[in-house]
């Protein structure tokens, strides 16, 4: 009983089933979400190879039904544009706008939330006032107004969606940072002499990330919906094909040829559903991370 006994450790746990990804894959709904999302990503990636021409060009007879002509498995619209090609190329635009817009609102939301939660006081009051301002304006009308003023293009639509959808995220990040800022985790860092930047970026934000990741997947879904709505109203980028725009174009023939609007509509539903399933799965997995065994 002399030296402090060297303590033996439990065996290392390298079980894939216990990692976040492993646990996510074991949930059927999250797995379905991931598979659907992977499908949409593949469509976007192979759009140029599968459909070489411009999806906005007339390709065949107008208003072909799905299956009517083997060259156009999903049929054509009233301008004779290939719907399958439109779905593939539209996946690109939808994912691009959804992803980048979510990224823009993540950067703004995390930045404002982190500053507000960490520094508190006057900084917090000022930033939260701005956040409230953004929360009180209905986001879709706000986006609509911005796009109308700026002229619709992929860049302006993305920016407008990003700028109008960060306020909820900022509040979420603020609450998490506030909690962690007063935790022993942050206090231990202060005692070691760590700078604010180190405490925020290396300890607080990584630990506040779980709910942010969950809401990011919902943000992408919402951005895709918003872009579709804008395109449906004719405020999409006229130079590219998008799912919302396709629904809009199919509106005129909805009584005679409902498939023209329905097919891109189904694509939107599947994309949004996939992102929501993924978000729910991530929420379950990340929030129960503490309870192991």
């Amino acid at each position: 009983m002399a030296l402090p006994e060297t303590v033996s450790l439990p065996p290392a746990r390298a079980d894939f089933r216990d990692t976040t990804v492993g646990r996510l894959l074991r949930r059927p709904s999250a797995l379905l979400g991931l598979l659907l999302l992977a499908g949409i990503l593949a469509m976007a990636a192979f759009a140029d190879i599968a459909f070489t021409g411009d999806p906005l060009d007339m390709a065949g007879m107008p208003l072909l039904r799905p299956g009517e002509d083997a060259a156009f498995p999903l049929g054509t619209d009233m301008m004779g544009r290939d719907l399958a090609s439109g779905i593939f190329h539209g996946a690109r635009v939808s994912l691009l706008i959804g992803g980048v817009a979510a990224l823009v609102s993540l950067v703004i939301g995390i930045g404002i939330g982190a500053l507000s939660g960490y520094y508190g006081g006057r900084v917090d009051r000022a930033l939260m006032r701005v956040t409230e301002l953004f929360q009180t304006i209905p986001p879709f009308l706000f986006t609509l107004a911005l796009v109308a003023i700026l002229q619709p293009s992929i860049a302006t639509i993305t920016a407008a969606i990003g700028i109008t959808s960060w306020s909820g995220l900022a509040r979420l990040v603020r609450a998490e940072v506030l909690r962690l800022r007063n935790s022993e985790l942050a206090q231990a860092s202060i005692i070691l002499g760590a700078s604010d930047a180190r405490i925020i970026f290396r300890h607080i934000l990584p630990n506040a990330l779980a709910p942010v990741i969950v809401s990011a997947s919902i943000l992408v879904a919402t951005a895709i919906l918003t872009e579709s709505s804008l395109s449906f109203l004719g405020l999409g980028d006229p130079n590219v094909v998008s799912w919302g725009g396709m629904v809009g174009a199919g509106r005129e023939t909805i009584r005679t040829d409902p498939h023209v609007a329905a097919i891109p509509g189904v694509a939107i539903v599947i994309a949004v559903l996939a992102l929501n399933l993924l978000g729910d799965g991530l929420n379950d997995v990340l929030s129960s991370k503490g309870e192991r065994r």
């Binding site: 022993e184 985790l185 206090q187 231990a188 005692i191 070691l192 002499g193 990584p206």
Partner: peptide, 19 residues
């Protein structure tokens, strides 16, 4: 920050203070 090289602290709950 400089003074902290000479003055350190052990907190009650290491589960909460270790990242």
């Amino acid at each position: 920050r400089a003074a902290r090289r000479d003055l350190q602290m052990v907190l009650q709950d290491p589960a909460a203070s270790l990242d």
